[in-house]
Amino acid sequence: MKNRNLVIVILAVICAGLLAGVVYTVTKGKSGTQKKQEASAEAGADETESQSGIIEEDGKKYKLNPDIKTVLFMGVDKEEKADLGNNPGENGQSDSLNLLVLNKEEKTAQIIQISRDSMVGIDIYDVTGNRLMTENGQIALQYAYGDGAEESCRLTSEKVSELMYGVNVDSYFSLTLEGLVAATDAVGGITLTVPEDYTAVDPAFEKGAEVTLNGELAEKYVRKRDIEVLDSNNQRMERQSQFMDALIEKMQSIQSKTEYLSLYQKLEDYMTTNMTADEMKELTDYKIAEDTVKVPGEIIEKDGHAQYLVDNKELKKIILKMFYKIM
């Protein structure tokens, strides 16, 4: 069951069985430090976290739970670019964002899914790393204004922290779409039944059709969307979830540590993380909740683009429940 919990976590962001291989076979990890931040929420939301970690809401006092730590998982599309304030960002976008919230005392965990269209203040930098300005934009765009690796992950983690009322993002892990293609081919393809008519994505994706996705088709299934449809990202997220479930079953059939090591070696060039192998291994100790919590909000169209406006009042309730204790 522990192994299944780990796979579920990684699949939440299309990182497939990568960490399962790392847990069993890797003897060294990529290490680094994650900048801690205390930031206020966007969209005019009230700041909830004081320097002491104690806040008051509806006549009740809450204290930040010291047993909580977080890992941000990112699915990255390196081909996508950003252009805010006529300042291009060339290093891809984080199209899939999932925050894993771990309770170290209870050994339980919960995934919070964040829409890539969530609106935040995007920090724009020049080629020397100096911040030029901040422009309102989709959170997925922040990745583009880093280095396409550690710096992009760090900047995205900071924006997730700001969106989530200043809670710390302790660690991060990203996998590119090229890595997804490699993972799908490495496990011999993924078979699933198409739940809706997705022939606009590919003619093979007829409703009710059973298809076996190779790497190329898997990329289409989890990546492509009709940008003319306002909620197309939500539809894509549903396809991603279905793909993850199918991949879970496929990964569970792998028993050989040698196969896991082979998979890791094939994907290593496509991933970025500041977690050590020991930190990854610790994830197997947690029982992952089957349900996924979504950051609440609504989609609107503005200037020809979809914008996901977070419901800060409802998000605050989630933050208080998951990150704080009543005093």
Rank of each mutant, 00 (worst) to 15 (best):
R4Y: 09
N5P: 00
L6S: 02
V9Q: 01
V9R: 00
I14D: 02
C15F: 06
G17M: 11
Y24E: 15
Y24H: 14
Y24Q: 13
T27M: 01
K28C: 06
K30D: 13
G32S: 12
T33K: 11
Q34D: 09
K35M: 04
E38G: 09
A43L: 10
G44T: 06
G44F: 08
A45Y: 08
T48Y: 14
S50Y: 01
S52K: 14
G53E: 15
E56F: 01
K60M: 11
K60C: 02
K63W: 03
D67T: 07
F73R: 03
V76H: 01
K81I: 06
D83N: 15
L84M: 03
G85D: 11
N86S: 10
N86K: 06
N87V: 08
S94Q: 01
L97A: 05
L99I: 11
L102N: 00
E106Q: 15
E106C: 04
K107M: 12
Q110P: 04
D117P: 07
Y125L: 13
T128A: 09
G129Q: 06
N130P: 00
N130R: 15
I139E: 01
A140G: 03
L141I: 08
A149N: 14
A149H: 13
E150L: 07
S152A: 12
E162W: 04
V167G: 07
N168L: 05
D170Y: 01
L180V: 15
A183M: 10
G189P: 07
I190H: 01
F205N: 06
G208A: 09
L213E: 05
N214A: 05
G215W: 10
G215A: 02
E216R: 08
E216A: 10
K220A: 05
K220D: 13
K220G: 04
K224S: 07
K224E: 13
K224H: 12
V229S: 11
V229I: 10
D231M: 03
N234D: 09
N234Y: 14
Q235Y: 08
M237A: 13
E238H: 06
E238S: 03
F243M: 03
D245T: 05
A246K: 12
L247D: 00
L247I: 06
I248A: 02
I248E: 11
I254D: 05
E259R: 13
L261M: 12
L261T: 02
K266M: 05
Y270R: 04
T273Q: 01
N274T: 07
E282R: 11
L283A: 08
D285M: 12
E290P: 01
T292N: 04
V293F: 10
G297T: 04
I300D: 01
E301N: 10
G304R: 11
H305D: 11
Q307F: 05
Y308K: 00
V310A: 10
L315Y: 02
K321M: 14
M322S: 04
K325H: 10
